[in-house]
């Protein structure tokens, strides 16, 4: 009987000596009584390490799940608000902006399916605004302009 050896594991960020060293250093600092900022940095590093330890296909699902969860939270927390600023300053919305360019196709797909005031996030991430001045505030026209923009950029299917 022959036994096959396990397939070689693809290198991950855990294999990067500098990051492992940084993580260990942060752990040591935390153990000595670290500042809140250090603890926060540690958490972010842990998240980052876990994220990049995933295969690329799972990373896409991870992003999508995270986006859906944040979008759901944002809608629930801002559904009664008229203030565009308050709607955009919601922590979940800001976290989506923090996802950067990788959030653009997810936002555009959500905009197409569910609408919603995604325009602040789209402008903040892309640094573009396809809405002509006379259409500002006309939500249907803003939605159309951004979906056309997304199609042109190949970020959302036509």
């Amino acid at each position: 009987m022959t036994t096959s050896s396990p397939a070689p594991r693809a290198p991950t960020i855990r294999d990067t000596p500098t990051l492992v060293l940084s993580a260990n250093l942060l752990l040591a600092v935390t153990a000595m009584g670290a500042s809140a900022q250090s603890v926060q940095l540690q958490r972010q590093l842990d998240d980052l390490t876990d994220y990049y330890a995933l295969p690329a296909s799972n990373r896409r699902d991870h992003r999508r799940d995270r986006f859906r969860s944040l979008a759901q939270q944002w809608r629930a927390e801002t559904q009664w608000l008229s203030s565009t600023t308050a709607i955009a300053m919601n922590p979940a919305y800001q976290a989506i902006i923090g996802m950067g360019a990788e959030a653009l196709p997810l936002i555009l797909e959500d905009l197409r399916q569910n609408s919603g005031h995604w325009y602040w996030a789209l402008k903040a991430i892309s640094n573009e605004d396809p809405v002509v001045p006379r259409d500002r505030g006309s939500v249907k026209k803003m939605k159309s302009a951004w979906l056309r923009w997304g199609e042109t950029k190949g970020l959302v299917r036509a």
Binding site: S82, T84, G116
Partner: peptide
């Protein structure tokens, strides 16, 4: 979602009114 309370008070059902700093909505 086409209009908000600020517009509705002014009897406008076409625009979302808000003086947002990004200049995205009607004012």
């Amino acid at each position: 979602e086409g209009y908000n309370c600020i517009a509705w008070a002014a009897e406008d059902t076409y625009y979302w009114w808000w003086p947002d700093p990004m200049g995205q909505h009607y004012w």
